[in-house]
Design a protein around this nucleic acid. Structure first.
Ligand code: FES
Ligand code: FES
Lengths: 169, 169
DNA sequence: AATAAACTTGACTTTTTTAGTCAGGTATCT
DNA sequence: AGATACCTGACTAAAAAAGTCAAGTTTATT
């Protein structure tokens, strides 16, 4: 389970743009140089970001990219989802079935588990905006995340019949 | 960002074993059949699980695997970490540097961001034990996860985004 | 002791995904 | 016009994930 460089690069690039004055376009060439990311790769990434309406492009000489919305209206989650495959793609099995489409999901514990995990991650990443990150010069102060009670219902009658065997097609 | 099938299979397999009486070994052949997972692949996975002291092996006829510890002492996180590369491997860049080893980490926002994410995920997965999952016949009731404050800047009042207790009803 | 069930090991192959590249554009500013 | 910079889609190389294989070793049972 990893975040791809594509996702990380995208966040870095957007952060870079966000550090510039609101209306001055930033060229990919500049970002490439500053962040040490391949220009060609950036171009590919920015197509997704543009289509996802995270950035707007200004073509021509002295053109570049500009945030399409207010930094406080762009979340890390949005960016990451544009560039990563979804964390929660499918059932317990690889990819045989579409999301939420396993016909034995009701009796499947893994189903709930992975789905909860995906929602947790999305919730976290969606709770952080670009504005949050640029107004923060340094990260030292940044913390207040706390998981309160994250247990799976501990109190439940012990069941004795085996769960129906999970059949595979 | 995905959980690999290896990790999912491992959890499924362990759950399968946990559903059997405490001291009866379960053979991989049986798990393979019931869960629809390649026997050869399972063997590979179980090497990791054994080294990680999640299971013990009993060789010979009627042998198989048995949980090495009490189900309430084995967390999903432990299992997953044995089979997945760590979520938080490195810096903002691909893999040029070791964990926590970036020399500009102090001034890097991404550093904190991805690290927090990794801790969130690990915290979640570590909070769920095998016992939690087997005492639960069905998943419908399963929830009580709550993220208290899931943002980076506490003083900034913003819209309430924290994931509602995820209802799986 | 012989047999057979079942685990053990390490290497191997195949498939899929990630990361990065390329060529040949189009739009816009000066 | 010329330079700058985005646009598009396909392409390739490298790495990781998923799955396989062969040749064992260990132990229960007969
Ligand atoms: S969701 Fe289909 S088996 Fe778990
Ligand atoms: S640049 Fe090294 S951790 Fe971000």
């Amino acid at each position: 389970m990893q975040i791809s460089t594509k996702g990380k690069y995208a966040v870095r690039a957007i952060l870079n743009i966000a550090h510039h004055p609101k209306e001055t376009p930033v060229s990919l060439a500049a970002i490439s140089k500053e962040e040490g990311i391949s220009l060609l790769f950036l171009e590919q990434i920015f197509q997704s970001l543009r289509k996802g309406e995270i950035v707007r492009s200004l073509r021509g000489a002295h053109g570049g990219y500009v945030l399409a919305r207010d930094p406080s209206d762009i979340t890390i989650g949005e960016i990451v989802r544009l560039l990563e495959p979804p964390l929660y793609t499918s059932s317990c099995f690889s990819k045989h079935e579409a999301v939420d489409d396993c016909r034995i999901a009701d009796s499947c514990l893994g189903f709930v588990l992975w789905k909860q995990l995906a929602e947790l991650v999305d919730g976290f990443l969606d709770s952080i905006t670009i504005a949050d990150m640029v107004t923060q010069a340094r990260p030292e102060v940044v913390y207040s995340l706390r998981v309160k009670s994250n247990r799976m219902l501990p109190e439940k009658a012990r069941k004795e019949t085996s769960p129906e065997p999970l059949e595979v097609v």
